[in-house]
């Protein structure tokens, strides 16, 4: 499944990070790498973007990006 489909409050392990170019590089640089554990904390009031926690900090990305990240739920 993708990170976008992950329910609020649940955690998963990233398997692959899709996308390309600057965007993908940014996701990887921010620590969204394969094998990392990430959980979804919240969805923004207007339904997008989403709030994640990983590596001890809080990150927000848009659904569009979350859709490109494959995860394995824990």
């Amino acid at each position: 499944m993708t990170l976008e489909e992950l329910a609020v409050g649940s955690a998963a392990v990233v398997t692959t990070v899709g996308g390309q170019g600057a965007l993908r590089k940014r996701l990887l640089d921010m620590g969204l790498t394969p094998k990392v554990t990430v959980s979804v904390r919240k969805i923004a009031p207007m339904g997008d973007p989403i709030e994640l926690t990983l590596r001890g900090y809080t990150l927000t990305i848009r659904r569009e990006e979350a859709r490109k990240i494959e995860v394995r739920p824990l």
């Binding site: 600057a22 709030e51 900090y57 990150l59």
Partner: peptide
């Protein structure tokens, strides 16, 4: 062209 991605930290 591609806008800079909105991948943003929410600091404490």
């Amino acid at each position: 062209g591609n806008p800079i991605p909105f991948v943003m930290e929410l600091p404490a």
